[in-house]
């Protein structure tokens, strides 16, 4: 399950960045990947659809949102947490 979340988030981000999923590294930032503000909201939409979760994110104040987008790894961690909260096993 853990690897699955990482793989699927990487796929979503790769699609927005027009890259192969294998080229998305966990230490990359959205800026490194060339994902702009519309690309970010589209990625969050795809994450919500894929994992059936609600992502608390306000584009007006990304720093203070509970959803940490500072790197691919932080996004994966945030998604993992939200999946655990919203779909407890």
């Amino acid at each position: 399950m853990t690897d699955d979340i990482e793989t699927r988030v990487a796929e979503i981000i790769a699609e927005q960045a027009v890259l192969e999923p294998g080229d998305v590294r966990m230490d990359m930032t959205l800026e490194d990947l060339g994902i702009d503000s519309l690309g970010l909201v589209e990625s969050i939409f795809a994450i919500e659809e894929t994992f059936d979760i609600q992502v608390p994110f306000n584009a007006n104040e990304p720093q203070s949102s509970a959803f940490d987008i500072s790197s691919v790894a932080s996004i994966v961690a945030a998604v993992r947490q939200l999946v655990a909260q919203q779909h407890p096993a």
Partner: peptide, 9 residues
């Protein structure tokens, strides 16, 4: 309960 983010533009 959600729509694609580009609906408005």
């Amino acid at each position: 309960n959600r729509v694609h983010p580009f609906v408005v533009p």
